[in-house]
């Protein structure tokens, strides 16, 4: 069934909203009532229709608006897209993967026709119909990674594998939770995770790195990450922190439902075939508290999770100013009843 793409904004008047159907497919990340820190990797397999996992690269009703927002971010700050020179093969790998997965998952919107190295890519929602030579960058208007990630929801990083480590050597990052590609590009796995509290001491990154170094072709893996954002703003970059930071002080008991958003990242990791690099897809989903409480299970669970967060994480995720206000507001929807296992709505 064709997706009805919305016209909406992630800045200024913030007209972004989720339709009732989209709320039910939201990848709510908490499978229990208290917060647990874990590596939590699982195979990235297709899930049921009507969930965010119905295709391995998800496209939803916000696609067109998100791509428009990405173009605006890049106009202001082209450094949000960067690739070190040795990553060209991995760029083509990524272009292939995203075109193939989008075309396979949403054939009514995307078509890829391959004839040897001559490819034709049709992207109906954005009105694109391009023919190009795979492997020849002069036949595309942008570098291959920039070209395809201007047409795919989520942030994308490509990490190179060498010397028993992973190196963040290319990326398109415009919808990030407060980290800078321009600053972090070239760093290894431990370095770019440097500012994350608690997890280093718990050995989480050592285990995750060991796991990822042996990630196999054809067996992608995924994990969840989450934070909260005030207003449906995709671009919460450190570059623009001085612009969006004041939002955090704007939460009142009256506007929690509208302003406070749960921001979930479904991170999928893919071994790329020609380069042996790993593609790191960080797909961001936003849902405000008014929308969240329309699912009774989530309305009960989320304030319980927020109440059990360790202080280091409250600080790191930037929730300090509005966490309590949000818990208080949400508690009206928590009657104390037990919740069912798993993450999906009842």
């Amino acid at each position: 069934m064709a997706i009805a793409f919305k016209q909406e904004t992630f800045r200024d008047d913030f007209s972004y909203r989720n339709s009732p159907e989209n709320i039910r497919r939201f990848p709510f990340p908490f499978d229990r009532d208290e917060y647990m820190y874990a590596v939590n990797m699982e195979p990235h397999l297709k899930g049921q229709k009507g969930t965010a996992f119905e295709s391995l690269i998800d496209v939803d009703e916000h696609y067109v608006a998100e791509m428009h927002d990405r173009a605006l971010v890049l106009k202001e700050d082209p450094l949000r897209y960067q690739a070190l020179p040795h990553m060209m093969t991995a760029q083509w790998d990524t272009l292939e993967l995203l075109m193939e997965e989008q075309a396979a998952g949403f054939p009514e919107h995307f078509t890829l026709i391959r004839n040897g190295d001559q490819w034709r890519w049709i992207n109906r929602p954005l009105g694109i119909d391009d023919t190009f030579t795979f492997g020849d960058r002069s036949t595309l208007p942008y570098e291959p990674l920039e070209y395809i990630t201007r047409q795919a929801q989520g942030d994308f990083c490509i990490v190179d594998q060498r010397d028993g480590n992973l190196w963040m050597d290319a990326g398109m990052v415009t919808t990030q939770a407060d980290w800078s590609l321009d600053f972090d590009i070239g760093m290894n796995f431990m370095e770019w995770h440097g500012p994350v509290p608690l997890a280093h001491q718990m050995g989480v990154f050592d285990r995750a790195l060991k796991f990822l170094l042996n990630l196999q072709q054809g067996k992608p893996t995924r994990r969840f990450n989450w934070t909260m954002t005030i207003n449906p703003r995709l671009d919460t970059s450190p570059e623009n922190y001085h612009k969006w930071g004041p939002d955090r002080a704007s939460v009142t008991p009256e506007n929690v439902g509208e302003k406070v958003h749960l921001r979930v990242e479904v991170q999928s990791l893919w071994r790329l075939p020609r380069s042996n690099a790993i593609l790191f897809v960080i797909r961001c989903y936003l849902m405000n508290m008014n929308e969240l409480v329309t699912v009774p299970k989530w309305a009960r669970r989320f304030p319980r999770v927020l109440s059990t967060l360790p202080p280091e994480l409250i600080d790191y995720k930037g929730l300090t100013r509005y966490r309590q206000t949000t818990i208080d507001w949400l508690s009206r929807f928590d009657d104390g009843a037990p919740t069912s296992p798993g993450t999906f709505p009842d």
């Binding site: 040795h86 990553m87 093969t89 594998q161 060498r162 072709q217 054809g218 075939p273 042996n276």
Partner: peptide
């Protein structure tokens, strides 16, 4: 099996 690469060139 699917291909596995433990001898990848350093592309730099």
């Amino acid at each position: 099996s699917h291909p596995v690469n433990l001898f990848q060139p350093d592309w730099r």
